[in-house]
Design a protein around this nucleic acid. Structure first.
Lengths: 331, 331
DNA sequence: TTGTATGCGTTATCAC
DNA sequence: GTGATAACGCATACAA
């Protein structure tokens, strides 16, 4: 049996109320009893029962993190940022993942909230529509969105447009005019914004936006990259460069397949990725890409959610972070 | 305010006890009240307060997972396995990470256990000594070790020796006699066992084990690999192959640096990794490596811990999984 | 089949 | 300063 307040109280000859006050560092306790209680607590190796405390205070000191899937290197880096800065805070992280979209994601959220398990939720999402997000808003619990901007919820996100714009402008400056772009075959606000950056750079250079240079992928993965590499090469008017705003893994698949098909990268075909995952450095040639500040997003997210939980700050926070275009060898 | 049993009870004209029994599907409830209560619960969008339930039942329906650090691709794959099979179980995962070793790790464990936050703990560790593990054993809570074998605790682990043995034997069959090996500069049982496999293959082939072919690294990382690649090349008797039981990232660093220094891989220098991370497929040449069944470990771990939590099975389970030697291009 | 009563370990509101 | 005592929301033994 674990040791409780009662055990300490009996041994110290006081009541549990007093012990509780000592443990929680409340004022108006004599030094004498404070010392005695504390020493007994130490001796008995007492740890407060978090569950009971949670029931009494209506606070769980836990933050829920809802992620689309753990497999992604992108998500993992964000989680790492979360954990890093959480280390010294008095909160724990409860992990929830969801493959499903929309309603399922919200159902999960709702369950988590209503069960009283967490004081706040960090949602890493990209697919949700605004209507879906408004459901999150309805719940009273603090909620911060990561990697997705929003007008109605707190959000930490990266400026998608500028990173893409820089990347495409760079390609144009290298003389490319036919620049392929890979997108994803489902609703994803981030990718859409990146495409905007692509279009803007094109427009500015007086280059026509061509639908036949847009290629769909289902996931950011090497196999998807390999797959569309072949599509790209079999097109009527072959591009001289491809930008992959969906992510680095796709770009890596592209590079691998282009090389396999006898093209030199970047001479015959330039490739630019997105995210800057560790693998960007292992592929050859090293991947030119747009870096997202993943650790920083995690860091900011956990700080923000704790602020919200503790101070109940009502204002909606929108924190935009810059993406950084990293020139390496593939373009 | 969240809706509680009481709200439902009042609306249904019964007591909270009855409602509780309905919610928990207890027997001996009339179909009529069951139906009525359930429909009201649904209407009010009721979710049981997990914290309160936890206090009453002394069960939290949460599993703690203690990991050394989230950054590692190896750990992440295990976590993915955990989450995958957890999806339909009625448990949540609470994540704890620890960079520190030994005492700190145990302090964290103890806190987690005593606070009553979790019903069981999965510990992914490699560095802990047997004495440290015996501390874990002392606590009454179920605990399964992953990626680390043990006589005193439940453990899910990979046979380290055979994978290494296969790898080194393969190198020998290719004519290599001077085979470098990279190890880690701190206590790590897994690596030690892999070194055993290396030694055994050597011994069997009548090749002397030479200390000057053993190279230390601090972490499994590309930079560490690059670093020791130079050490290896500057040695008096240069090996013709290097086996990196510490992991794939080191092996990738080796390959990159060997190539940079003008060596051909595998012709001039063969390289074999360990783990089979995604990056093993992106490096050129593709990495020959020893695959660990990471998803499977996660899967088994979560199933085992839930079994232990629910059935209080006392027997110590030791589940050994095989490693698989994967031949690709780097050796 | 359902209601009553009690406890889980804490915190919080009062008196004293 | 400290002690009673009542919550917190739920589960459960026992009574009815």
């Amino acid at each position: 049996m674990a040791v409780t307040l009662k055990d300490i109280a009996e041994k110290a000859g006081v009541t549990t109320a007093t012990v509780s006050m000592v443990i929680n560092n409340k004022p108006n306790i004599s030094e004498a009893t404070k010392k005695k209680v504390l020493s007994i607590a130490q001796e008995l190796n007492y740890y407060p029962n978090i569950i009971a405390r949670g029931l009494a205070t209506k606070r769980s000191n836990a933050i829920g993190v809802i992620v689309p899937n753990l497999a992604s290197g992108f998500i993992m880096r964000i989680m790492e940022g979360v954990k890093n800065t959480l280390r010294n805070a008095n909160y724990t992280v409860i992990l929830f993942d969801t493959i499903g979209q929309g309603v399922d994601e919200f159902k999960l959220f709702q369950r988590v909230v209503y069960e009283g398990r967490v004081d706040g939720v960090i949602v890493i999402t990209a697919g949700s529509t605004d209507e879906e997000l408004s459901l999150f808003k309805k719940e009273k619990i603090p909620c911060v969105l990561v990697a997705r901007q929003s007008d109605i919820l707190d959000s930490i996100y990266v400026n998608n447009k500028t990173g893409s714009y820089d990347a495409v402008k760079y390609l144009i400056s290298k003389g490319h005019r036919d620049i392929g772009v890979v997108t994803v075959n489902r609703k994803n606000l981030n990718i859409e914004e990146r495409i905007e950056g692509y279009k803007e750079a094109l427009l500015e250079a007086g280059i026509e936006y061509r639908q036949d240079l847009v290629f769909d992928v289902t996931n950011d993965s090497i196999v998807d990259g390999v797959h569309i590499a072949n599509k790209i090469l079999s097109g009527s008017r072959r591009p001289t460069a491809v930008f992959s705003p969906v992510g680095d893994m796709t770009a890596i698949g592209l590079i691998k397949e282009f090389k396999k098909r006898g093209l030199r990268v970047p001479e015959d075909m330039a490739v630019v990725g997105y995210d800057d995952l560790p693998a960007a450095l292992v592929v050859e040639p090293a991947l030119t890409t747009v870096r997202q500040p993943k650790l920083e997003m995690g860091d900011l997210a956990i700080n923000l959610i704790i602020d919200k939980v503790e101070k109940r700050d009502e204002a909606i926070v929108r924190r935009e972070l810059p993406a950084k275009f990293i020139i390496r060898e593939s373009a």
